[in-house]
């Protein structure tokens, strides 16, 4: 992949996302969610999207706003139902959204596998539960495992803390969550950070996502929210 493009606006950063794309969106609840990239994606207009994210939106901001705008066909997530997930709940109950529920660790590992060139893996999570129904299993040693396949994105939208002009990223506290694995798992990786700093000013020992994974970077002022329980 080519060198990271540092762009001036979130609208430039999401340009070219096509209808029907699979879009990975970082965040756990609202921590680490790339609000400005999502808002730009709503303006950009891509539709029939498959969204991969841990949750399915809170209130009417971020991912919930994208759902409300009617751009999403399917959500792949671990935990859609939350205290304030009413936008998702309504669309799902009305039959307007497909849902694939994946155990949270399996979701992370399927993304990791996609980014790491792994064709599939045997995972002990979910064995004997409805989420493993119809899936291939294998007994290895004294344990049963389920065969799980990678989840790759056409695009990843990621919220990080700081990036340098080569695209090296650092995150902040539990807002890191899915960012580092999603950054490896999509063809085009778009990142919003609070601040773009000159190359050489991040401690190389502290870089979490190396710039090789990052295609587009944009600095936007921090917008951070707290969920009222979930």
């Amino acid at each position: 992949m080519s060198r990271t493009l540092v762009l001036d606006t979130a609208d430039e950063a999401v340009a070219g996302i096509e209808d029907g794309s699979t879009v990975l969106i970082s965040g756990f609840g609202l921590a680490g969610m790339p609000f400005d990239l999502i808002d730009a994606l709503i303006r950009q207009g891509a539709k029939d999207l498959t969204i991969v994210s841990n949750n399915a939106g809170n209130g009417e901001i971020g991912l919930a706003a994208l759902l409300k705008a009617g751009r999403v066909r399917k959500v792949i997530c671990s935990f859609p139902r939350q205290a304030d997930s009413y936008v998702f709940d309504g669309l799902y109950r009305a039959g307007k959204l497909a849902l694939e529920v994946v155990p949270q660790g399996t979701l992370a590992e399927r993304l990791r596998a996609a980014g790491a060139g792994i064709g599939a893996f045997f995972c002990p999570t979910g064995v004997g539960t409805p989420l493993a129904e119809g899936k291939e299993t294998r007994v290895l040693g004294d344990r049963t495992y389920v065969l799980e396949y990678p989840i790759a994105g056409d695009v990843a939208l990621i919220g990080a803390f700081k990036g340098d002009t080569l695209g090296n990223l650092v995150y902040r506290k539990t807002a890191r969550n899915f960012g580092p694995v999603m950054a490896t798992a999509a063809r085009t990786v778009v990142v919003q950070v609070n601040e773009v700093v000159p190359t050489g000013s991040l401690d190389p020992e502290a870089v979490i996502t190396p710039g090789i994974y990052v295609d587009r970077l944009v600095a936007v002022p921090a917008r951070r929210y707290i969920v009222e329980g979930a």
Binding site: G29, L30, A31, E109, I226, V227, G229
Partner: peptide, 23 residues
């Protein structure tokens, strides 16, 4: 807002805390 627990409620960090990604 960047420091929450599994229930998405704000928490604190203790000395010796460590952060890591989801995988």
């Amino acid at each position: 807002p960047d420091l929450i627990n599994a229930g998405k409620l704000p928490v604190t960090e203790l000395p010796g805390a460590a952060y890591f990604h989801h995988a």
